[in-house]
């Protein structure tokens, strides 16, 4: 029993790390641009297909494929910012709707390029580690990559936002775009950076987990639901909240899945979100109302 609990805990840490990557990108885009990016799950999907193309089909090293996926998805983000979100800056519902349109386009492109069948790609490493030195509690090395990458990337982002000039500009835009513009900060520039980073984080999550999941054009759907739950629980616009909520939700979801089943876990997650919406709509860490 202890082994099962510890194993579930390890699985939860893995789930938390990739969910945090997705949710933080989602929050960053919302915070700086005020847009709900419904296509965020499809950016994750695009990252996974980048690995299918570069690593599985062209046989480049795995980490080259992950980097390529991050840049590729980041560029998709830049395209979305320029073509869709910038013309609709004063229309938050419009931004949501066009991202739904873009989601349909990305899904169709994936279907046309790779077909609807599920892709399985061989993980670059089959090695597993024993955690806590216990025989029965294992962590595949591939999952460890995801955890390490998540910690490094999110840590790097935190330093970037706190210490660099761009980071401060970004946070200023999130607090008050007009005041930021009056201080000489380019809102377009901030939106570009936020969109690139946010999309690239989703792409990295998709690319790193590609060997561990079933890849298909509609794999983004559950991801966007997860992202919604996390940002509501953590508080809209709060990056720290997103990380904490990702850990919380991943643990709840993993434990309920292990001890009951996956559908019940989804229901519990959604009920958790509804509960937060009813009791404390600003979430655990949210301070102000941007919606």
């Amino acid at each position: 029993m202890t082994e099962l609990l510890l194993q579930t805990l390890v699985n939860g840490v893995y789930a938390a790390s990739y969910m945090a990557l997705i949710a933080v990108g989602f929050v960053l885009i919302f915070g700086v641009m005020g847009v709900i990016n419904f296509a965020h799950g499809e950016l994750y999907m695009a990252g996974a297909y980048a690995v299918v193309f570069v690593y599985a089909e062209r046989e480049f090293p795995f980490f080259v494929a992950v980097a390529a996926g991050a840049i590729f998805v980041g560029l998709i983000g830049l395209l979305m910012e320029r073509a869709l979100f910038r013309p609709l800056r004063d229309n938050p519902l419009g931004g949501l709707i066009v991202s739904i349109g873009f989601l349909l386009i990305l899904q169709t492109l994936a279907v046309l390029g790779f077909g609807v069948r599920m892709e399985h790609i061989p993980p670059p490493t089959q090695q597993t580690l024993n955690v806590f030195g216990i025989e029965g509690v294992i962590l595949p090395l591939q999952r460890l990559y995801v955890i390490v990458a998540s910690v490094l990337l999110l840590g790097g982002l935190w330093v970037f936002l706190r210490r660099s000039k761009f980071g401060v500009a970004l946070r200023a835009c999130a607090q008050d775009p007009e005041a930021a513009a009056l201080q000489g900060i380019s809102i377009n520039q901030a939106a570009r950076i936020a969109m690139f980073i946010g999309a690239a984080l989703a792409g990295v999550a998709g690319a790193l987990t590609a060997p561990l999941v079933r890849i298909h054009p509609f794999m983004g759907h559950p991801v966007i639901i997860t992202a919604f739950i996390i940002i509501i629980v953590g508080g809209i616009g709060s990056l720290e909240g997103a990380v904490v909520a990702a850990v919380l939700y991943a643990m709840v979801h993993t434990f309920v899945t292990t001890f009951f089943d996956g559908v019940i876990a989804d229901i519990v997650g959604l009920l958790l979100m509804l509960l937060v919406l009813v009791i404390r709509p600003t979430g655990l860490f949210g301070i102000r109302d941007r919606a």
Partner: peptide, 10 residues
């Protein structure tokens, strides 16, 4: 068809 649909929406 979904691609056209998305494009029309945008």
């Amino acid at each position: 068809r979904p691609l056209f649909y998305g494009a029309i929406l945008i």
